[in-house]
Write a protein that binds this DNA or RNA. Structure first.
Length: 200
DNA sequence: TTGTGTTTTACGACCTCC
DNA sequence: GGAGGTCGTAAAACACAA
């Protein structure tokens, strides 16, 4: 039995299979207070694809942490960093039989039967999960900023602080390890980044 | 335990840039 | 034409009050 920090109990794949074979409804897994671990996904939802039967994988805390760190460094990830991050976190393309990642799936030997034969080579769009994560993360930030803006508009204007209370830190805590350009990106909408491949 | 609201993945449509 | 951006949305996962 494995206890995860956020959701409590994690049921190993072999127990999920036993549960399924015991005659429970197919959707039983989804109603359990369990985290769907990447390595167990193919056993829980063999042959599912995103378009036919919607699904999603819950990223691990480690994956989220690393992605967040990268996001705080820069809101727009470069092609190079995307590849590195995808390789480090086991996030790549998601085209294969509902497997969470082709790389992890292959490495763990958890491909559903006939899966590789059916789908063969990876999709053209490598590191898609990282790209999508960053898109969603930016969307989340825009949403939060919008909310903040609305709250500020509703509040009456605050009187200005006395001069002795105005310090550089009043604008917010410094962002650890960030270059000014990256830090300035936080909290404001950013222009489109220059594609790394076009840089000299 | 259950109902409900929020957050997190994932995608399609559409747009811009090269 | 392809890659990657935003926007809107679906649905699973999660949190929490009743």
């Amino acid at each position: 039995m494995i206890v995860t920090p956020r959701a409590g109990v994690y049921l190993p794949p072999h127990l999920r299979v036993l549960l399924l074979r015991a005659g429970g409804p197919a959707c039983a897994f989804r109603r359990l207070p369990l985290r769907t671990h990447l390595s167990s996904w193919p056993l829980c939802f063999p042959g599912k694809t995103r378009t036919k039967d919607k699904y999603r994988v819950v990223y691990t805390d480690h994956q989220r942490l690393e992605l967040e760190k990268e996001f705080h460094y820069s809101r727009y990830i470069t092609i190079r960093r995307k590849s590195e991050l995808a390789a480090n976190l086991g996030l790549t393309e998601r085209q294969v039989c509902g497997t969470p990642t082709s790389a992890t799936g292959a490495a763990l030997g958890v491909w559903p039967p006939g899966c590789q034969a059916d789908y063969g080579a990876p999709s053209k769009e490598e590191n898609r999960e990282v790209k999508i994560w960053f898109q969603n993360r930016r969307a989340k930030e825009r949403k939060v900023n919008k909310k903040k803006q609305q709250q500020q508009q509703q509040q009456p204007p605050q009187p200005p602080l006395p001069a002795h209370e105005v310090t550089p830190s009043a604008a917010g805590p410094p962002l650890g390890g960030l270059c000014p350009s990256s830090a300035s990106l936080l909290g404001a909408s950013s222009p489109m980044p220059v594609k790394e491949e076009y840089l000299p």
